[in-house]
Design a protein around this nucleic acid. Structure first.
Lengths: 220, 220
DNA sequence: CTATCATTCAATTATTCGATTGAATGATGT
DNA sequence: ACATCATTCAATCGAATAATTGAATGATAG
């Protein structure tokens, strides 16, 4: 079947693409983009069984998208490098702009509010150093604890209502979450705007911010 | 199965990735990156049957990677936009750097010669305006006729031996072909270097050159 | 209006994939 | 050296996919 080098190459490229072609594996990659994790932790975060996670992770490893190492009794998986992150971002970009259904869902998350353009990371960095912005991390608390943008507040989207009084209505709010596939930031921005706040989404999530080489606040 | 918007989104992203997960479709996309084409022409170029090409093209269309229009009796397919090209490039990049087998094949194409770093498109453009470089288009003649880098010579890799005397040994040669998945340029560079020429590969092929907004020489 | 013909559809077959279950592995840490 | 336990493997099932064949579609061109 694949005697010529050309065909072998194409099959390898196809293998990488196939690794991205299951929602379960995209969830795993999104998690790994936050930080390296053990199989069990990944299984819990994604709702997959451990055995199933393990098999998906092996497919991702065969495709070169993740690598693993041992730490004590656990195997720790992580993204091979920043190119994996780039690939995920471009994939989301293509889908968002070329698939009508994706655009609709993303707009639907805004719940009637028309969302403003996201703020880019350069601009946020500048605004942060001025102190003229409130940064909101809407990921689960454990992921926030692991690492976040310095000075960010952590509020789960579902709890946002309870903390509205804590937020300064005169300062622009920038919300972010995991990255291109995370919907929390969209929802948070819509909710805040509906309640009269000036809120925008950050372009990219924590992984992209970190990949830019910017400072993060980490626990360990 | 997919009630939550999050899952629906992931399924859509996975659909795009799945579209890239078959060698046949990657070949079709490589062809479409050269120029828009009819189904029959694509089938001939890729060696697929017409019916099979049609079905693959429909999958690519569902994934938003290509679009089609009618021209007379024919349906003309083309890449939806430059993002598709970017996606293909990043996919190749990940595979080349993370999969050992891909690296080996690409090195194997050089046939013992160690290939120099490719020249980037900015540099080639500068060198072209100086006239200090010979540009070699190693794609098939019909694709060359369709469009090529201005001033480029067209030689199929297999015919390269016959034309060695036509090439100036004192001018550096830059070879290019279809893009990241095309192996002709690698082979041409190896052959030329083995024969004492100073040759390098262009980073990216004609589609990337065109996408940069640079001048091309076209027939029509 | 009708014949033409490029493209698409439909039905089939062989293959591959994803999820599940329970057992096996094998490096750790005592 | 051995027990532990996170991870992986193996086997199974149901579903989805790619390629092939031949027929159907449907817009064009005369």
């Amino acid at each position: 079947m694949s005697i010529s080098p050309k065909m072998t190459l194409l099959e390898e490229y196809a293998l990488v693409a196939r690794a991205l072609s299951a929602p379960a594996r995209l969830m795993l990659l999104e998690q790994l983009a936050q930080s390296e994790r053990r199989v069990e932790a990944l299984a819990e975060k994604t709702g997959l069984t451990v055995a199933n996670s393990s098999q998906h992770l092996q497919q991702l490893r065969r495709a070169g998208l993740v690598t693993s190492r041992r730490d004590g009794k656990a195997i720790i998986y992580r993204l091979t490098d920043a190119r994996t992150l780039t690939l995920l971002g471009v994939l989301g970009d293509v889908a968002e702009r070329n698939l009508a259904q994706v655009g609709e869902i993303l707009r639907g998350l805004s719940n009637g509010e028309d969302a403003p353009e996201p703020i880019n990371r350069n601009e946020l960095a500048a605004r942060l150093s001025e102190g003229s912005v409130t940064v909101l991390d809407v990921r689960p608390a454990d992921e926030f604890a692991d690492a976040h943008i310095p000075g960010a507040l952590n509020m789960a989207v579902t709890e946002l209502g309870k903390f509205l009084t804590d937020l300064d209505r005169n300062t622009e709010i920038v919300a972010y979450c995991r990255g291109p596939y995370c919907v929390y930031a969209h929802q948070a921005v819509a909710f805040l705007r509906k309640n009269g706040f000036n809120a925008r989404r950050l372009d990219g999530g924590l992984p992209e911010w970190r990949e830019d080489g910017r400072a993060i606040q980490a626990t360990s």
